[in-house]
Design a protein around this nucleic acid. Structure first.
Length: 500
RNA sequence: GCCACCAUAGCUCAGUUGGUUAGAGCGCCGGAUUGUGGAUCCGGAGGUCCCCCGUUCAAGCCGGGGUGGUGGUACCA
C-alpha cells in the first residue's frame, strides 16, 4: 500500500457535534458537583434510584401515532421485534414509568433523586449538547404545594452548595393554572391547545425578543433579522395585551406580584386557584426565609414543556457569562422543573400528582468553566510515582521497586515507553507525579536508589530563573535523595508527605 | 429547516495585483548534560492550503457547485 492509499484508508478521528469527551479535569469537576447536589438532595430526604438509558418510545410519550414513528428529537431505533426504543431525553418520563411499574411497593409520597446522561437529537449550541447530564429530584404522590415549595427551596440550596453566591442566581416560580386563567380571560378556551402552545413558546422567548417581539408572535407573526418568518398565534389585540400584562406582572415583591396577577386572571376560577397556590408558596418561602430574593414569583417563566400542570420553576444565573472573545454567552436556565400531575397517570389511569426539579449539570459546568469558577478549576490529581528505566536489561529489578510501592498502597508505575531519561522525566512531570525513582549502574552497584522530588524541583526552577548553570545544578541536587534500596518505601513516603 | 459568516501545520494565525520549494508563534519530538523534567539555546518532525469542477502559461488566492464548522433564527416533542 502506498502513502496515498494509506491516507485515504485512514478514518478521520472526529466527534459528532453536540457531544463532548470528558477529561480527567472535567470528570473531577463533575464529581465534585454531583457530590454537592447529592448531599443536599439526601439532606432533604430523597433517596437514590436509577433507570436505564433506553426506554420504549411510547413510555417516553414520544411516539407519533399518526406518522408511525418516533419524534425526530429523540434518538430512536427498532428492537428485533420491531418495537421502537429511544434514548431517554430527560429523567422525568423514565421516573414516571418506574413509579407506575413499581407503584405498589413504593412508599407514598415517594421522594427520589437520580442523575445521569440524557440525549436530545437537536441542533447543539453553547451550553446545549446532544448528550448531557441532569440531576433530578421528584416527589411523587403529593398534591400539596408544600411539595413544590420545598423543591424550590432545595433548588436554591443546591445552587448555593455548588458555590454560586446568593444574589448570583434566582429561582423563579410561576403557575400554569394562572396562565390558563389568563388565556381563559383572553377568550382562549379548552379546545385551542395548538394556540395555547404557540402562546407558551412565545412567552418563553420574552427574555430574548422582549415584549414587542412576543407581541408580534402572539399576533400575526414575526420576521427575524435573517428574514425568516415565524407564524403567530393570531390573537386579538385585547387578548395579546392581557397576556403581556400577565408576563409583566412581576412587582418589587411577591405580595405585589400576586396582587397584579389576581387582576389579570379576572374571574377565571382556574386562574384564581393558581394565584392562591402561588400565594401559599410565597408564604412558605417567606416563613422559611427564602423570600429574600432567592425564590421569586415571576410570571414571565412558563417553560416549554407541555406536561406541566401547576407550579413551574426555573433556576437562572444572574451574572453574565462571556466567551473567550468577550462576547456574552447565552446559557439559558441551569435547572428547572414543575408539577406534572398527568405523567404517571398515562400508565395507571388514575391521577398521581408529582412534582420535581432538574439540575442541568452539563450546562452548569459549562457556565462555571466559562467564568473560571474555583469549584470546577480544582487541581488535577497527582500522578503515580514513576520508576524510570535507565538500563533496559534491568526491567525486572525496576518492576520490583514498583511492586514494593504498590504493596504499601502507594500508586506507582514502571515507565513503559522507549524514550531516554530526559523524556522519562518529562513524562513523570506530565503525569503530575510527586516523585520519580532513578537507579543507574552507579547506584545499582551500591544497592542504592535516587528519589527525585519533582514538586520541589518545580519550585526551585521557578525561583531560579536567572542563576547560572552551576548554581542551578547544585540546587537540583537537593531535590533528590539517595537511599538504600531497602529504604525506598520510607523515602517515597516522606516525599509524598511533604506535598500532601 | 432558513439566513449570515468562516475553512492554510496539533493550536492561534500570516500569506502581496494569481508567479518557483506555502510561513510565524505556541505546542510536540530530540540534543546541549556518560545520567536528570519545568528556565535558556540549538535542531527535527509535522501540510491533499476542506473537496470537486472550471478560468488561466500558472490558483492557497478568481468563478461555480459540494462538504464541514461557527453564530443567529425556527423546532426542542
Amino acid at each position: 500500500m502506498n502513502d496515498a492509499e494509506t491516507k485515504s484508508a485512514t478514518v478521520k478521528a472526529r466527534l459528532p457535534r453536540g457531544l463532548a469527551d470528558r477529561t480527567p479535569t472535567d470528570i473531577a469537576a463533575t464529581n465534585r458537583m454531583m457530590a454537592a447536589i447529592r448531599e443536599i438532595y439526601e439532606l432533604y430526604g430523597f433517596e437514590a434510584v436509577e433507570t436505564p438509558f433506553i426506554e420504549y418510545t411510547e413510555a417516553l410519550g414520544k411516539f407519533l401515532p399518526d406518522l408511525d414513528r418516533p419524534n425526530e428529537g429523540v434518538f430512536s431505533f427498532q428492537d428485533d421485534d420491531d418495537q421502537w426504543l429511544s434514548l431517554r431525553y430527560d429523567l422525568t418520563a423514565p421516573l414516571a414509568r418506574y413509579v407506575a411499574e413499581h407503584f405498589d411497593r413504593l412508599p407514598k409520597p415517594y421522594r427520589s433523586y437520580r442523575a445521569g446522561f440524557v440525549f436530545r437529537n437537536e441542533k447543539p449550541g453553547p451550553g446545549r449538547f446532544r448528550q448531557f447530564m441532569q440531576f433530578d429530584a421528584d416527589t411523587v404522590g403529593s398534591a400539596s404545594v408544600a411539595a413544590d415549595a420545598e423543591i424550590c427551596m432545595m433548588a436554591a440550596d443546591t445552587i448555593e452548595k455548588l458555590g454560586i453566591k446568593r444574589g448570583d442566581y434566582v429561582i423563579k416560580v410561576n403557575n400554569r393554572k394562572v396562565l390558563d386563567g389568563v388565556l381563559e380571560a383572553a377568550g382562549l378556551g379548552e379546545g385551542q391547545n395548538a394556540q395555547k402552545l404557540i402562546v407558551l413558546r412565545a412567552i418563553d422567548k420574552l427574555d430574548r425578543l422582549g415584549p414587542e417581539g412576543v407581541r408580534l408572535l402572539l399576533g400575526a407573526g414575526r420576521k427575524d433579522e435573517s428574514g425568516d418568518f415565524t407564524k403567530g398565534a393570531e390573537l386579538a389585540p385585547a387578548a395579546i395585551q392581557r397576556i403581556l400584562d400577565f408576563t409583566a406582572a412581576r412587582a418589587s415583591d411577591n405580595a405585589g406580584t400576586l396582587e397584579r396577577l389576581r387582576k389579570t386572571v379576572g374571574d377565571s376560577a382556574r386562574g384564581l386557584e393558581g394565584v392562591a397556590e402561588l400565594a401559599t408558596m410565597a408564604d412558605l418561602f417567606g416563613t422559611a426565609g427564602y423570600g429574600d430574593g432567592r425564590v421569586v414569583i415571576d410570571p414571565a417563566v412558563v417553560r416549554g414543556l407541555e406536561y406541566y400542570t401547576g407550579p413551574v420553576y426555573e433556576a437562572e444565573l444572574t451574572f453574565e457569562v462571556k466567551d473567550e472573545n468577550g462576547r456574552p454567552m447565552r446559557f439559558g436556565s441551569v435547572g428547572g422543573g414543575g408539577r406534572y400531575d398527568g405523567l404517571v397517570a398515562r400508565f395507571r389511569g388514575e391521577p398521581v400528582p408529582a412534582t420535581g426539579f432538574s439540575v442541568g449539570v452539563s450546562r452548569l459546568l459549562a457556565a462555571l468553566t466559562a467564568i473560571h469558577s474555583p469549584i470546577v478549576a480544582g487541581e488535577a490529581q497527582r500522578g503515580p510515582v514513576v520508576v524510570l528505566v535507565l538500563d533496559k536489561d534491568q526491567v525486572a529489578r525496576y518492576q520490583g521497586f514498583v511492586s514494593a510501592l504498590r504493596a504499601e498502597g502507594i500508586r506507582a508505575e514502571l515507565y513503559l515507553g522507549s524514550a531516554g531519561m530526559n523524556a522519562q522525566l518529562k513524562y513523570a512531570d506530565r503525569r503530575r507525579s510527586v516523585c520519580a525513582i532513578i537507579q543507574g549502574s552507579n547506584e545499582r552497584e551500591k544497592g542504592e536508589i535516587i528519589v527525585k522530588d519533582l514538586v520541589l524541583g518545580a519550585q526551585v526552577a521557578n525561583a531560579a530563573k536567572d542563576m547560572d548553570r552551576a548554581e542551578y545544578l547544585a540546587l537540583k541536587e537537593r531535590q533528590q535523595t539517595t537511599v538504600a534500596e531497602a529504604d525506598l518505601v520510607r523515602a517515597v513516603r516522606e516525599t509524598l508527605a511533604r506535598h500532601g
